[in-house]
Design a protein around this nucleic acid. Structure first.
Length: 815
DNA sequence: TGGTGATTCGGA
DNA sequence: CCGAATCACCAT
C-alpha cells in the first residue's frame, strides 16, 4: 500500500496522509498537485510532499482522486524552502502554500445543484423561491451556489435548497473546473494552398470588381512577403477604418486568406533596442572584485553603497555574468513601484528574457509567469517578496535591493516571514549566490556582515565622485527664542529654500505624518474623537474634510461643535503633512508646491503624473511622507528639509533610531545627485541627539557602532532573538485571561527574563478586537533552538485549552 | 418550543 | 480555512 503526505491550502498544521490508488502510483511524484477530498465533500488541490508506505494507525486515509500535473510543479528546492519557513517562522505549510500559489493553480471544487433525473415535480406545493430555483434549473441544468443569490434572497437560500432536497427533487454535486484560460489573439495569413498553386495575377483579376477586397488581399500579401516571420494581427487590418471585417470575411469565404489563433502572453515584453551597460568606475570595479572573491569562497554579500554610488551598475554586471554562465537571476525589490529605473535598464538589455512578478498582477498573469519560469523561458525575474515562490529551474544569483526596507516583512499578511532573511536561505537551497544591497543596511545585516557571516562590501563614494550632501542642524529652540521662525519653519530654513528656488532648482520637504492634524480636541471639555472600532484617535484630513482612522480606515465627518459639550472651540493639535504643505505653499506663493503621501497618491496614475511633473521641473517643492524617500532620482533637487525631525525619533520602538537614520539618509540621497552641492536641513529641538550628530559626520560605520552599542546594552537584536505572540479577541476579559495563561505556560518552560508581558498592545483595540502581546527575548545560537522547542510545547499546551480556541493567535519570529 | 444567529470543532 | 454540529437566546 502506498501513501502520500499532502499539504492542503488551509491554515492547518503539517500535512495529511492519503492513500495512493495503484493506478496512480506510477505517475505520482513529490511536488505535483493532486486532487483530494477533505472535510464533508469538498475537493482541494494539495501538493505531494512525501510518498511512503506507512499506513496511518489512528484513522483511515482517504484516496487521492487524481493528479493534475505530468511533472512536479514545485521543485525540490521549494519544498525544502517551505519546510524551512514553516519551521523557522512557526507557521503552517498550508499558509505558505496558499501564499505561494496563484489561486488559479489551486483548484477547489464548487458546489452545484441539479434536478434529479426522472422526477415528477408537483409545482402546486412549491413556494415562490422553490419555484424560481426549479425553473432556473430546468433551463440551466447546473447552478452554482453563488449564482442563486441573483434570484433568491440570501437568507432564504439554505431553506429553499434544503426543502427541495427533502422533497427529492434536486441534488448537490461537486465539480472541479480549470480556472486558467490562455488569452488568444487572432492572426491572419494568405491561404498556403493559394501561394503554392495559384497565380496571383489571376486572383487579382477575379477580385477586380471588389476593389476593397483586392486592396486587402494585396495588403496582407505585401506584409507577409516583407517579413514572413512576423505574424499579422487581425485587428491591425482594421486600424484606420479603411477595411472592415466584411471584406476579410469575403476573402476568407473564397479560401484566399485564413484566420488562425495564437496564445498570447498577457504581459507585454519589451521589444525595442538592446543596449550595453556603461563602464564601471574605479570604486565600483573594486567593489565588484570583492563580491567575486566572496562568491568564490561561497559567501553571500552585503553591498553597502551610499546613495547614488551606482549599486545598480554592479548588479547589472553580476547579472550579466550569471546569465552568461547559463543560470537565472532573481531580483527582489520591496515594492513594485520602485522598478522603474532598474527595469528600464534591464529591459534594454534582456528584452523578452525578463519577467515580472508582484502583487499587482492579476491571477492569470501570475499563472503565465509561473509557466514561463517553469519552462525556463525567463532568465531574470524582477519581483516582490512573493516572487520567492516561483518554480525556478536553475537559479544562480539572488539580489535583494533596498534590503533594509520594511516592506520585506509586512505584519499584516500571513505567513509572517522576512523576505530578506528568507532569500539567504532560499539561495542556499539553490546553491545561488545572494547580494543584499542598500544605502542604509539594516542593523542586523550590518552586524552579520561585520561578524563575517556575509562579506561586507562598502562603496563609499557617489558615482562620478560627486560629493555627498551636507547636513546642517537647525536648533529650533534657539530660533524660536530669538523669534526667527515662521510657523514650523525657521527663517534660516526659509532663506535657504528661497536661494535654491531662485537658482531654479527643486526642494524636498519631509514630514512623516499623514493628515492635517493628529487630533481635534475640544478646548472646554477635552473631548477627542476616537475611532469606534479601535482605541485610536482619528486624524483630521483637511483635503477631504473628514476624520480618518489610519488603522481600520474608518471615516467620519469633522465635527463642527464638540459632540459632548457643544462648544465651538475645537482645537487642532499635532502637525500633519497636509499642514506643512499648506504652510510651504503660503511661504512660497510664487512656486509650485505638491504633496506626496498615500492619501494624495490614491488616484490612478497620481504617482506617475507627479513623477513626470517633477521630472519636467514643473514642480518646485515636493512635500511628502516617507514615500518621497523612494525612487525619486532627479537631477535638480538640491535641498532636503526636515522641519520636524524630532517626530521621527519619538516612536515607541527599539528600531526608532535605526529607522530615523535610514529615512533621513535615504531622503537626503535625493539631493545634489549631479551637482554635488546637495544640502540637508534638519530642524530639531535636540541638535545634540547622537543620531543627528552622527548623521552630520557622514560616516555610516559610526552610526552603526552607536546603534549596536545601544542594542547590546538593552538586549535587543541582533544580540538576542525576539518572538512576539499576539492574541486577539472580541472580548477583552477573555483575551486578557488567555494571555495571562499563555504567559504562565511560557514562564514554566523558559527562564523568567526571557518572557515579557503579557501586555496590552500599543493599540489596545483594533477593528473591534482587543489585543495583548507577549514578547520573548531569547539568546542566539544553540540555546535558541532549544528554547524554540520549548516554545512549541508551550503553544501546543495553550492550544489544548478548548475555551481559548476562539482566540486569534499570531506568532512573529524576528519581530 | 422551534427557529435564528453565534460559536465551536474536526478534518487524513 | 470550511462546513457541520452544537449552543444560546428570543419571540411566540
Amino acid at each position: 500500500m502506498n501513501y502520500a503526505q499532502i499539504v492542503l491550502p488551509l491554515n492547518l498544521k503539517g500535512s495529511f496522509t492519503y492513500k495512493v490508488p495503484d493506478e496512480l502510483i506510477s505517475d505520482i511524484q513529490v511536488g505535483m498537485r493532486v486532487l483530494v477530498p477533505f472535510g464533508g465533500k469538498k475537493i482541494y488541490t494539495g501538493i505531494v510532499f512525501e510518498i511512503h508506505q506507512n499506513a496511518p494507525e489512528k484513522f483511515v486515509a482517504k484516496e487521492v482522486i487524481g493528479i493534475l500535473d505530468d511533472k512536479p510543479i514545485v521543485p525540490q528546492e521549494q519544498i525544502n524552502f517551505w519546510n524551512w519557513l514553516s519551521d523557522y517562522y512557526l507557521c503552517s505549510l498550508g499558509e505558505i502554500y496558499r501564499f505561494a500559489f496563484p489561486s488559479s493553480l489551486k483548484l477547489e471544487s464548487e458546489t452545484y445543484l441539479k434536478i434529479k433525473p426522472n422526477v415528477h415535480i408537483d409545482f402546486q406545493n412549491l413556494d415562490v423561491n422553490e419555484m424560481y430555483l426549479i425553473q432556473a434549473l430546468e433551463v440551466r441544468q447546473l447552478i452554482n451556489l453563488t449564482d442563486i443569490e441573483a434570484f433568491i434572497p440570501k437568507k432564504d437560500i439554505i431553506k429553499t435548497i434544503n426543502s427541495l432536497i427533502d422533497l427529492q427533487y434536486i441534488e448537490i454535486d461537486e465539480k472541479v473546473a480549470e480556472k486558467y484560460k490562455a488569452k488568444e489573439v487572432a492572426y491572419v495569413k494568405i491561404n498556403d494552398e493559394v501561394l503554392k498553386y495559384q497565380n496571383i495575377t489571376e486572383i487579382l483579376l477575379t477580385l477586380k470588381r471588389a476593389q476593397k477586397q483586392k486592396d486587402l488581399f494585396l495588403h496582407i500579401l505585401e506584409k507577409q512577403t516583407e517579413n514572413p516571420d512576423l505574424p499579422i494581427k487581425k485587428s491591425e487590418l482594421f486600424e484606420g477604418g479603411y477595411f472592415g471585417n466584411s471584406h476579410f470575411k469575403a476573402l476568407a469565404d473564397k479560401n484566399l486568406v485564413e484566420e488562425y489563433y495564437l496564445q498570447k502572453d498577457r504581459i507585454e515584453s519589451y521589444e525595442g533596442e538592446i543596449e550595453q551597460i556603461e563602464q564601471l568606475s574605479e570604486a565600483q570595479i573594486i567593489a565588484k572584485k570583492e563580491i567575486d572573491e566572496a562568491f568564490e569562497e561561497g559567501k553571500n554579500v552585503l553591498l553597502h553603497g551610499v546613495t547614488s554610488s551606482g549599486k545598480t551598475h554592479i548588479y547589472l554586471e553580476k547579472i550579466e555574468e550569471c546569465i552568461n554562465e547559463g543560470k537565472n537571476v532573481l531580483f527582489l525589490l520591496p515594492e513594485i513601484s520602485l522598478t522603474k529605473q532598474i527595469t528600464q535598464r534591464l529591459e534594454k538589455k534582456y528584452g523578452r528574457q525578463l519577467g515580472f512578478y508582484h502583487q499587482k498582477l492579476t491571477d492569470f498573469e501570475r499563472v503565465e509567469v509561473w509557466r514561463r519560469i517553469r519552462q525556463n523561458d525567463i532568465k531574470i525575474l524582477i519581483g516582490t517578496r512573493n516572487a520567492l515562490f516561483l518554480p525556478y529551474q536553475n537559479l544562480g544569483l539572488i539580489i535583494v535591493d533596498e534590503e533594509h526596507d520594511s516592506a520585506y516583512k509586512p505584519r499584516e499578511v500571513s505567513p509572517y516571514f522576512n523576505a530578506k532573511d528568507s532569500a539567504l536561505v532560499f539561495g542556499n537551497f539553490y546553491g545561488a549566490n545572494v547580494i543584499l544591497g542598500s544605502a542604509t543596511p539594516s542593523v542586523e545585516s550590518y552586524y552579520n556582515a561585520r561578524k563575517d557571516k556575509m562579506k561586507y562590501v562598502f562603496l563609499n563614494e557617489r558615482f562620478g565622485n560627486v560629493k555627498l550632501p551636507e547636513y546642517e542642524l537647525i536648533n529650533f529652540k534657539e530660533a524660536q527664542d530669538s523669534k526667527k521662525v515662521s510657523g514650523n519653519f525657521s527663517l534660516q530654513l526659509v532663506d535657504s529654500i528661497k536661494k535654491v528656488l531662485d537658482e531654479k532648482n527643486q526642494v524636498i520637504v519631509l514630514h512623516n505624518r499623514r493628515g492635517y492634524a493628529n487630533v481635534v480636541e475640544c478646548e472646554s471639555c477635552g473631548y477627542v474623537n476616537y475611532c469606534s472600532n479601535c482605541d485610536v484617535v482619528m486624524t483630521y484630513h483637511k483635503s477631504t474634510n473628514e476624520m480618518k482612522c489610519h488603522y481600520c480606515g474608518q471615516r467620519a465627518s469633522k465635527p463642527k461643535t464638540c459632540p459632548k459639550c457643544h462648544s465651538e472651540n475645537l482645537n487642532e493639535r499635532g502637525v500633519g503633512v497636509e499642514q506643512i504643505h499648506e504652510e510651504v505653499s503660503k511661504l512660497f506663493p510664487d512656486n509650485e508646491v505638491d504633496r506626496m503621501d498615500v492619501d494624495s497618491m490614491r488616484k490612478k496614475f497620481a504617482y506617475e503624473k507627479l513623477y513626470e511633473k517633477i521630472e519636467e521641473r514643473e514642480t518646485d517643492i515636493v512635500v511628502g511622507t516617507q514615500m518621497i524617500s523612494k525612487g525619486l532620482d532627479f537631477d535638480h533637487i538640491e535641498l532636503v528639509a526636515i522641519p520636524k525631525a524630532d517626530s521621527l525619533l519619538y516612536v515607541q520602538d527599539f528600531r526608532a533610531e535605526e529607522r530615523a537614520y535610514q529615512l533621513i539618509t535615504q531622503v537626503s540621497g535625493r539631493a545634489g545627485r549631479v551637482s554635488g552641492n546637495g544640502k540637508v536641513f534638519i530642524q530639531t529641538y535636540n541638535p545634540d541627539h547622537s543620531v543627528f550628530q552622527l548623521l552630520k559626520m557622514n560616516e555610516p560605520a559610526k552610526v552603526y557602532k552607536y546603534i549596536l552599542t545601544e542594542r547590546q546594552k538593552f538586549h535587543y537584536p541582533p544580540f538576542t532573538k525576539l518572538i512576539m505572540i499576539e492574541l486577539k479577541h472580541r472580548r477583552e476579559d477573555k483575551v486578557n485571561r488567555a494571555s495571562q495563561f499563555l504567559g504562565s505556560i511560557f514562564r514554566k518552560y523558559l527562564p523568567e527574563d526571557c518572557v515579557l508581558g503579557p501586555e496590552k498592545a500599543q493599540i489596545a483595540r483594533l477593528n473591534n478586537l482587543y489585543q495583548f502581546q507577549i514578547l520573548l527575548k531569547l539568546p542566539r545560537g544553540k540555546k535558541y533552538e532549544e528554547y524554540k522547542k520549548l516554545i512549541l510545547i508551550s503553544l501546543k499546551e495553550f492550544d489544548e485549552i478548548t475555551a481559548y480556541q476562539s482566540i486569534k493567535k499570531g506568532v512573529f519570529v524576528d519581530f
